[in-house]
Amino acid sequence: MRTYIIRRLLQMIPLLIGISIVNFTIMHLAPGDPVDLLVERNATAEERARIRELYGLNDPIYVQYFRWLSHVLRGDFGKSFVDGQSVSKTILERLPYTLYLNFLIMVVIYAVAVPIGIISALKQYSKFDHIMTTLAFLGQAVPSFWIGLILIYFFGLKLDWLPISGVGTIGLNVRTAGFWATFVDRAAHVVMPVIVVAFGSLTGVARYMRSSMLEVIRQDYVRTARAKGLPEKVVIVKHALRNALLPIVTLLGNELPLLFGGLVVIESIFSWPGIGLLSIRAIFQRDYQIVMAINMMGATLMVLGNFLADLLYVVVDPRIKYS
């Protein structure tokens, strides 16, 4: 097992380097560079060429890549071409907002989807099952920006119950307004984004839970439990549910990178200062350093998440063994 873990970890190094090369190349293949997009039509070709030279953008791409790599290996993701700020600082500034939002979304999704999946399975083909299935697919099918704007219109404008953008009221914090007022304010700001994303993403987890539960309740040991004369509640909660939850747990491992990923559309609509807005803007501005850092963060988490999921299988299923 130990050799397996070490081998997997070592395998990640060439994998990540490969990913970085592909990322770097694709990004530089895109037409335009930060200087073009920074100055738009305000500077002459000569002036742009001079600035490009200062930034080393005229060097061959492999020279630029190795320069980037040697900095990254020393823990330095460089400085943004656009605002000159440290890339790691810029990302760390935004990460808390993204984690905060995504964590709440995750909690809501699992808290709602798991029970829905269980009930749907236990009462297969019932009215509840049909309604939930329809709702879930509706959530998947309707674009989130549309739901977002509709919610803003009704709850923000017409009913005037909720704030429509941002993470909190300006100037309102624990120091100025006390804990509860701040808590209510922050919660009011986060309700709509969470609902919009959760509504759209419930489906997957709910369906997963439903089929997993359906599979388990047909197992011999569930029948045995029932035959023993155990009450139905105990059969479902103690015997079926625990086993049915196992694949959902591994699903969580796979979703680790999603926790860090930005939600571009939602962040745009609700003016949420997360990673999504940062990355989309960096891509449009060809701010190579930021794009690379975000991509590599995503890639590393994905690789780690997969690895973690593989390890979780061992914990969950004693039949699987790595050597």
């Binding site: 704007l149 803003i152 219109y153 923000g156 404008l157 005037d160 704030p163 429509i164 953008s165 941002g166 300006i170 962040e267 745009s268 609509i269 609700f270 003016s271 807005l277």
Partner: peptide, 20 residues
């Protein structure tokens, strides 16, 4: 003097109507 930033024009319009 405060500037509030919106990524979407329609949302900014809603903010104007709401009085934000």
């Amino acid at each position: 003097v405060i500037w509030k930033f919106y990524a979407d024009n329609q949302v900014m319009l809603a903010a104007l109507e709401k009085g934000d």
